[in-house]
Design a protein around this nucleic acid. Structure first.
Lengths: 315, 315
DNA sequence: GGGAGCTATGAATCCGCAC
DNA sequence: CGTGCGGATTCATAGCTCC
């Protein structure tokens, strides 16, 4: 809405900032972001940082922030919102449904709802429900025409995976993959024709349960998939609730600019560690490069999600 | 709402009736149904049997019918609604979201949302979306305490399915199944000890296709799963939009009473064929029994969904 | 009898064209 | 310029042949 005096540099660098995105984004110009991928604090969660938004207040809390998202997003950009409503008093709360309706009123188009199927979801047992193994990835856009690189996330067809892939040795597959690099899917599509298929709107991704000190809101493969799908190299990716920086890490690995915002200094520090190797760079990295921390080698793109999203095999 | 003069017999028999459930259900007493499983006609522009309900009119069309559902359902009963919103003008329509909110106002509790992951979804390619591979199975109840037989839908754990089950031939599994009858899962549990697990709220089921003359709205395993989960033997299952009778078939196979309603004579005829073997019976069938039509042998329960819902194996 | 190969088909969606 | 119809696109699965 407001036309800020601040002008973005010709090339926005990656950065992690401390603050509330509701106010911090006001310093950003209109239409400077290609993609927003975020997993906001769920209602009643992270009480210490965001003050524990109550489910009934969630929409009112969210709208001023999404208003900024709408302003800074390019017309061809996308906004991917990973969220799942809580069960309150034995019933699913409706704040996510109400949020979708409210965002449409705000000017967003509710283009699609992707399902993230969590293959290894949290264990537990309750008398009136089973374990919750899925979350919504709501896809909002400003226009009906937007940037979508469908080829970038193609997956092997079922036949190919069940017959052709099995006939190859495992090492053959891996070696072939690494030689071709991140043009894997694209080149296969050109060479092999019908042996690659477009994925569906259901993503099969396991939650990461490794030795990370803090639980990421979603696995790296999730932002990877949307970043590949909705941006090109050099585009700008924003996570206004950056948390431990999973979205930023995915963006940096894929040679996109990454902007992260969080209200907690601890999280901003973690984001800065992720961004450290690319701070001030002009975004033309040699590959592969390695982060300073003990995170795995940052490969340009291992097509993790492409493989993981492969449809489940039958018994 | 109206207190009908018609009194249900001590044991309600299975039946398929021609008419609109909005009016036909008024002849039924309060609280005579244990479970409603249905896949209503989705909003559509085209005129079909239901006259092609427009998306904008869908909620208003639905509410008088769900009001009857609420009345005839027992307090401990469940209402499972399989539905998916259409893409209209490049955007997901919101009528399903609005329907959920409206049903809550009507008195329903939105207890859970199960996801049916369609492994073989309709093909196609569009510039702004991928193939739609999932549908909602909305679970509504009247009370926070309701009947839920979680044990009835337990599934073998991953290790078991990937080793023990695979070592058996397909015929072995089927033969074993028919010998043991609907205690299949139970006996497996006895065999294997503790290697059964509760499922999640994501169901992996393929749509049934092939040379069936009529299209079933959903695969048999879908109503099977909910019927096992939310009813006991002898309970009453209602499908107010019965269609080709998939829900009724599942109910009959599982020795539940089945009530089907549809506005199309053609569909009612199909439902009656399914119910023919059990018409007027006191619901103590020997097993296995066979339908007159060319459908497969009606086994008491093949635990199809239990196997299908097995979590996808990793690559 | 089982496995490879072929074919039909399914709650789809977008776009262009006619009216 | 809204409304409606038909064509093009696309893939996992069942069910069938044919060795």
């Amino acid at each position: 809405m407001s036309a800020p005096e601040f002008k973005a540099p010709p090339t926005i660098g990656s950065a992690a900032m401390l603050g509330d995105c509701a106010t911090l984004l006001q310093g950003y110009p209109d239409q400077c972001v290609d993609l927003i991928v975020t997993s906001p604090p769920y209602a009643d969660q992270r009480a210490s940082t965001y003050g524990g938004i109550r489910p009934d207040d969630y929409v009112a809390w969210f709208l001023p922030r999404s208003e900024q998202f709408l302003r800074v997003l390019k017309p061809t950009g996308s906004f991917v919102l990973n969220i799942k409503e809580k069960a309150v008093n034995g019933e699913r709360h409706t704040y996510v449904l109400e949020l979708i309706l409210a965002l449409r009123k705000q000017g967003w188009l509710w283009t699609e709802e992707y399902i993230w199927h969590k293959k290894n979801c949290f264990p537990g047992k309750w008398p009136n429900r089973f374990r919750d193994a899925w979350e919504r990835c709501l896809h909002f856009t400003r226009q009906r025409q937007f940037k979508m690189n469908q080829q970038a996330v193609m997956v092997p067809t079922g036949d190919w995976a069940q017959t052709r892939l099995k006939s190859l040795g495992k090492n053959d597959v891996v070696r072939y993959d690494s030689q071709v690099g991140n043009a894997f899917a694209k080149n296969i599509a050109n060479w092999q024709g019908r042996e690659m298929a477009y994925p569906t709107n259901v993503l099969h991704l396991a939650t990461e349960c490794g030795n990370k000190q803090h639980s990421a809101a979603f696995p790296l493969a999730l932002p990877q998939w949307f970043i590949k799908l909705f941006t090109d190299e050099g585009d700008v990716v924003l996570d206004p609730f950056a948390g431990s920086g999973t979205t930023l890490q995915a963006a940096v690995e894929l040679k996109r600019h990454a902007i992260g915002i969080d209200v907690a200094q601890e999280y901003v520090d973690m984001c800065r560690e992720i961004l450290a190797p690319v701070q001030g760079r002009t975004m033309e990295p040699r590959t592969p490069y390695v982060t300073q921390r003990s995170r795995k080698t940052v490969r340009p793109e291992s097509d993790r999600c492409g493989l993981s999203q492969q449809a489940p095999g039958e018994s």
